[in-house]
Amino acid sequence: MRVTFERSGGFAGLIVTTSVDTATLPATETEQLQHLVQSANFFGLPAEIPAAPQPDRFQYEITIEDGNQHHTVRVGEASVPESLRPLLNWCMEKARRG
């Protein structure tokens, strides 16, 4: 499974990106990631989650490729579904640690 993550916007306007390939992850982290993707029902989410835009909030784009499945979700910070939040936090933590 490959995950590509981007957080943009915010007052600072920084673009934070990270890519994760489970082929290079320790088994425990792969398991953790698979669990987060499942509980977010990621492949069942709409490609664009609409929101009334609020100035200076973050914007997320996350793409996951897994076998023959391939899906991209774009969502603004103010309308992130609760089920997706842990996956975004996990990706953000990965991006921080480089």
Binding site: S8, G9, G10, G13, I15
Partner: peptide, 21 residues
């Protein structure tokens, strides 16, 4: 990443089409 003139305007999708850029 901010451009100083139109020659380097950002045209990607991030940041709502680069509003802070």
């Amino acid at each position: 990443p901010q451009p100083a003139d139109m020659s380097k305007i950002y045209t990607g999708k991030a940041d709502n089409g680069g509003v802070h850029i």
